[in-house]
Amino acid sequence: MLPETLFRSEDVPAAERFECFSELMGRTHAPLQLLSDHREDFRASQRLLTLGDVSVWPTTFQPVCFRRTPKLIRQSDPEGVHISLPLRGTLRVTSREHEAAYDPSHLCVLDTSQPVDVRGGDLSRPHTGVGVEVPKALLSVPPNEISKLTTLQLSAKEGYGALIAKLLTQLAADSSSYKPTDGPRLGLIMTDLLSALFSQALDADNSLTPETRRRSLVLRIQAFIQQHLHDPQLTGTYGWAEAGGGTYNTWGSATLVNHPANCGRDWAGQLQYYDATRPSWGWHPLALVLRGQTRTVSLDFKYVLDVRFRVCNIFDGKDDGCGRVQ
Rank of each mutant, 00 (worst) to 15 (best):
L6A: 10
F7I: 14
F7A: 14
F7W: 06
R8Q: 10
D11F: 05
D11P: 07
P13F: 06
R17M: 13
F18K: 03
F18N: 03
E19R: 11
E19H: 09
F21I: 12
S22W: 01
E23S: 13
L24M: 08
L24G: 05
M25T: 04
M25K: 04
T28V: 14
T28P: 07
L32R: 00
L32D: 04
L34C: 07
L34Q: 04
D37C: 08
H38E: 14
R39T: 11
R39P: 06
E40H: 06
D41C: 11
F42C: 10
F42E: 09
R43P: 07
S45H: 05
L48Y: 03
L48G: 03
T50E: 15
T50R: 15
L51Y: 02
G52A: 12
D53H: 06
V54P: 04
W57L: 15
P58R: 08
P58L: 05
T59P: 02
F61Y: 10
Q62R: 06
V64T: 12
V64C: 11
C65Q: 13
F66C: 13
R68N: 03
P70C: 07
L72Q: 02
R74S: 13
Q75E: 15
D77H: 00
P78W: 06
P78H: 03
P78A: 10
E79Q: 13
G80Q: 06
G80A: 11
G80R: 06
H82L: 15
H82W: 12
L85Y: 04
L85W: 02
L85Q: 05
L85M: 09
L87Q: 12
R88P: 05
R88Y: 03
L91A: 15
L91C: 06
T94W: 00
E97H: 05
E97L: 10
E99G: 14
A100S: 14
D103G: 04
P104I: 04
S105A: 13
L107R: 02
L110H: 00
L110Q: 05
S113Q: 07
S113D: 04
S113C: 08
